[in-house]
Design a protein around this nucleic acid. Structure first.
Lengths: 354, 354
DNA sequence: CCACTCTATCGAATCGATTCGACACCGCGT
DNA sequence: ACGCGGTGTCGAATCGATTCGATAGAGTGG
């Protein structure tokens, strides 16, 4: 690799017998440069194998790096088993890619909640998206704000100077709870996504709830209770089928009189786990127990079962985030956005037994 | 957002009554600066809310941006339904994150094979990884090489000045074919991953095969034929359960005498689809038809079925890529790496019927 | 007491491009 | 023939840090 003599704009300019400033104009496509001159510059560049202005140098002047950070709360392998996370980022890149802006993955590892300040400090960022990552008490957030990097938080808490994009989580599960109440369900339980990423699983205590990192998890729980009053909730250690199954078994593997007649899982992934738990315990859905989820993701392998769930427009949410980022990069301050959700009744909920 | 007066290193230096160069030394933790001075500089920085040296300016001097591009051949939502892609990137970030290097997602869209030169041109890159993206005839590759950005290709073709990390694809499927031959199978068919990303599906012609973009797809096919001679192959439009099912149905929905007794899918995802196809056609596995895959990914929803497959160390492959990238960034030229694979016999292959 | 050696700090050049104001030149109108 | 608007090109400052060679000053040994 010939690190030796990589040409710069100055080299190209010299070869085309123009000033560097003119060469720059030629590349940026300014109309202030004569077509013939532009040709000459481009030809010189081609001869020298010049690939265009150095992005780093350009970034320094223009105060734009073309890089947006995606803060991920776990390692990729775990975060991306969640179709919601993937769809979200897909929407973001759909908007940002055509603008020549890339999404930089900043995952945490098994222990941490997210990337550390040390990792962030060396990386050029035009903006950051808290994608699957709580941000309360996050030193990384403070660091970004000091740097003046604008932040968008998806489903995150509302924080000053952070753009919020989310959904009415509470109304979503409240609608779901009303649906269940209308079917006669009185003993309803919740399978919750992690309230914090510390590997905890099991019944959710009041204390635990107070120390939750994730706004959406809290809200989805409150939505159910708004309609049905306090309900037992079991937390999974991660948002996954396995943890959903585990929590589901904990709730359902009890004598029939104590058993919930309906289980509301906070994600479709966990709902799929609850379905497996029910199957494993020989319970029919929805005759013995109703199961509902949240998100509205495609889980083709469940077919022909159709999960009752609260559908959120995940990809569109990603696009909205992408547009918000684009505006922030332009220097504007976009409004917070709350997208809509709707209940989709499938085959997994029915009248309460008995 | 106070864009107005963000402090720079010079501001901090002035406040600490030292030269900018000394302040720089203080931040880079050089031992050539007196502890007391360092304290003073750090204190001044804290008072001013200075978040540390600007990464872009630093990059300009040090010729390092801390950003590595991941070239993705499709939109994220499709690429990341593939657990292999996710595990691979997980391994890459596992190595790179602690080094303060981030992975920049550069997806293509529905039409393109990968990111365009226009998108690449504005983004600072220390290196690029062709993760899920063919690179033959790719103008983006030429652009990267002109820029002097080192490239690592996963399972990619061997190209000059591109570091190769892969597996013995051909030996893997050859082992699998021998396993099937040993069970008495003579009529074996292949369900192939896309040879190019152009939405084509259906029987693989010789012409199509010659114009394939993906080395691994070709090799896996050749491995089977090395042992069993020419076999019919059906290509899916994408590497997914749905396309696997579609291709599987095309192969299996024929009168028994013509029907293959074993189907080799080129990925576990597609193998899962073939299993669904068999189920849909009322065929028992492995009594009526044997099915095998490739990759060795976890597909928990298949349980209790255990897929016969060729296991590759995907996460480790990602780590190897990460280490190769790290070396390239340091200016060294790492060797190509070929990791090992092994056959894992599950419950989906058995003696040929009849 | 002088010379010599470190050590801590500083100055200035450098990384590679962008951008704004200045300027030369051309053609046209009067 | 002179001036004027307009176009195309150029110079120089700037973005924010890093780094090497120079230097002042403190400390040490003869």
């Amino acid at each position: 690799m010939t690190d030796r003599h990589r040409p710069t704009l100055a080299t190209v300019a010299a070869r085309a017998a123009v000033a560097p400033s003119t060469a720059s104009l030629a590349f940026s496509g300014s109309s202030r440069v004569a077509p013939a001159t532009r040709e000459r510059v481009l030809a010189a560049a081609a001869e020298l194998g010049y690939a265009g202005p150095d992005p780093v140098a350009r970034s320094l002047r223009s105060r734009r790096s073309g890089v947006v950070g995606a803060m991920i709360g776990e390692r990729l392998a775990y975060a991306f088993t969640d179709p919601v996370a993937v769809q979200l980022l897909d929407g973001v890149t759909e908007v940002l890619s055509p603008l020549g802006v890339g999404l930089l993955l900043l995952p945490g590892d098994a222990d941490r909640r997210g990337p550390t300040v040390g990792q962030l400090a060396h990386v050029p960022l035009d903006a950051a998206v808290y994608a699957t990552c709580g941000l309360e008490d996050d030193p990384a957030l403070a660091h970004l704000q000091r740097r003046g990097v604008p932040v968008v938080a998806v489903d995150g808490p509302r924080v000053d100077d952070v753009v919020f994009v989310g959904i009415p989580d509470r109304r979503g599960t409240a609608d779901l709870a009303r649906h269940l109440a209308g079917l006669g369900h009185r003993r309803v339980a919740v399978v919750a996504m992690p309230l914090r990423l510390d590997g905890t699983r099991g019944p959710v205590t009041a204390d635990r709830r107070a120390r939750a990192h994730y706004r959406d998890v809290r809200e989805r729980l409150l939505g159910v209770e708004e309609v049905l009053g306090p309900v037992p909730a079991v937390e999974g250690a991660s948002n996954s089928v396995e943890e959903g199954e585990r929590a589901g078994r904990a709730l359902l593997d009890v004598p029939a009189p104590d058993r919930p007649t309906a289980v509301v899982a906070q994600s479709d992934l966990m709902a799929a786990g609850v379905l497996r738990a029910a199957e494993g315990l020989g319970l029919r859905v929805p005759e013995d127990v109703s199961v509902a989820g949240f998100d509205g993701v495609e889980l083709p392998w469940l077919a022909p079962v159709r999960l009752t769930t609260v559908v959120q427009p995940t990809t569109e949410k990603g696009r909205v985030v992408g547009r918000a980022v684009a505006e922030l990069v332009e220097g504007r301050r976009p409004d917070d956005v709350v997208l809509d959700v709707h209940l989709s009744v499938g085959t997994t909920t029915g009248p309460a037994p008995g």
